[in-house]
Design a protein around this nucleic acid. Structure first.
Lengths: 129, 129
DNA sequence: TTATTATCTGAACAAACGCTCATGTAGAGA
DNA sequence: TCTCTACATGAGCGTTTGTTCAGATAATAA
């Protein structure tokens, strides 16, 4: 457009300028609740670690115990246990106890579906990926 | 199973025990390449911040400039610029220049699809979410 | 040229993260 | 009971992350 956009000056809590007040208003209207963003971010943050992805990808096939996962990942059992707690808190995995051994398995297919979607994106992506 | 699983002791590089060697082997066989996990994790890590989610969710509707986004998020323009660089590096957003104003828009629908899938998971989730 | 606007970038810093280490706990067997 | 195994947990520590601040850059206009 040839006419310059209007400049709006704003509320006292923010010293930034704003060029398209309507767009900001529209963005606010269709925005999700703050809690939604927090929860989605927490989910993605949990998926944002290679070793946790490896755990989910492996458990999607077959349940495994902590020892197995530690050997599989090449890290300490303690590290795996911490990671599993993380995954458990978001209900991405569950466990069952068989004597002294705790077997972990996927408890929510959404996690692996997200991983697969992300994988597709990377495979389809531009050569720079 | 009632018979106790066999204990395997392992390679010198790891001092952890292993109960189900076959499962570890199978997990290794079907595992993705290390680079894949790194890239998927990088994508999820980028999506693992509430403000970046807000940006993507807003831009999915309409392109906006840095000023707009700063006001929308209630943070400094510098912070928005840093976040946008992050999103740009993963090719989740692109920009176009119109004089002094830089307009950002979504460059890959995968990002928003991932957000929507995560949102569904949270909405369908157990009451503890 | 100089001034102004919009954006970008590097430094700095507090907060969060992921690991290791040491310790604690639960179940099975002698 | 005691011991061993499998796992969980808290402390500590180095690294990463997200922000603000200050300064640099690019485009426009006087």
């Amino acid at each position: 457009m040839s006419k310059s956009p209007e400049i709006h000056n704003l509320n006292e809590s923010c010293d930034c300028r704003c060029i398209h007040q309507e767009r900001v208003d529209a963005a606010h209207e269709q925005a999700l609740a703050a809690k939604d963003y927090e929860q989605i971010a927490a989910l993605f943050k949990t998926l944002g670690d290679p070793n946790r992805l490896r755990i989910l990808w492996a458990l999607d096939r077959e349940e495994m115990c902590v020892c197995d996962l530690a050997l599989f990942l090449g890290v300490s059992e303690s590290a795996v246990s911490h990671q599993l707690r993380h995954l458990r808190q978001l209900h991405l995995v569950t466990n069952r106890r068989k004597g002294p051994v705790v077997y972990y398995r996927i408890s929510d297919s959404h996690g692996c579906r997200l991983i697969q979607l992300a994988l597709e994106r990377i495979r389809e992506g531009s050569p720079s990926f």
